[in-house]
């Protein structure tokens, strides 16, 4: 395993309205590492993750991405009429990923795989969204509250996915409330 940063940020600062959301935030993630972002509601964890994902422009500082990133926000990205199979195969096509059947099975979505998202539970939609992480291999996972809406099984499943991703040389940066459930390499407090 090499020791190059997969992603690093230097002196990030963000302004929302008339107030400074955060300033001088620097972080990096190497292969196999997991960074946990901490902070109270409204501290800017989501904004920081969006900056890392390249979705939002920071007011100060810069981000260097040496590898592709998966962004998983708190919104699942499913259309109301879309079933888990349709959703995953759409993004598999869009991203040039492989077969969706193994992903469906891995995420425990075999039973509701043809049910429109409007009729799925929040946890099932979450599992579908998490399934996107497995469609294409991208070394950096940026996860915003990934455990929300998941049941105990789902939580264990996601912990396995994160452990597997780290073992294969990926990095995870996650905003998490409460106990992480995995050993964080570092914590960044906003």
């Amino acid at each position: 395993m090499n020791d190059e940063n997969l992603i690093s940020a230097n002196g990030l600062g963000m302004i929302r309205g008339a107030r400074v959301l955060f300033g001088e935030v620097s972080l990096f993630a190497k292969p196999g590492e997991a960074i946990v972002l901490r902070g109270s509601n409204g501290a800017g964890k989501t904004t920081l993750l969006r900056i890392l994902a390249g979705l939002t422009q920071p007011a100060a500082g810069d981000v260097t991405r040496a590898a592709e990133v998966h962004w998983l926000g708190h919104r699942d990205g499913l259309k109301p009429h879309e079933s888990p199979v349709e959703h995953l195969s759409l993004w598999a096509r869009a991203w040039g990923g492989g077969a969706t059947d193994p992903v469906i099975e891995r995420m425990g979505l075999t039973r509701p795989k043809d049910v429109p998202a409007a009729l799925l539970s929040a946890g099932q939609r979450r599992r579908t969204a998490l399934g996107r992480l497995l469609l294409v291999d991208r070394p950096v996972w940026l996860l915003d509250e990934p455990f929300s809406a998941l049941d105990t099984n789902g939580r264990d499943l996601l912990l396995e996915l994160i452990a597997g991703h780290r073992a294969s040389g990926g990095a995870v940066i996650a905003a998490i409330h409460g106990e992480a459930g995995f050993t964080a390499s570092r914590e960044v407090v906003l």
Binding site: V69, H74, R132
Partner: peptide, 16 residues
């Protein structure tokens, strides 16, 4: 607006 609200727009912005 629907894409923005359900998060699909984030994914499209990131497409290659």
């Amino acid at each position: 607006q629907a894409d923005l609200e359900d998060g699909a727009l984030d994914l499209w912005v990131q497409a290659d």
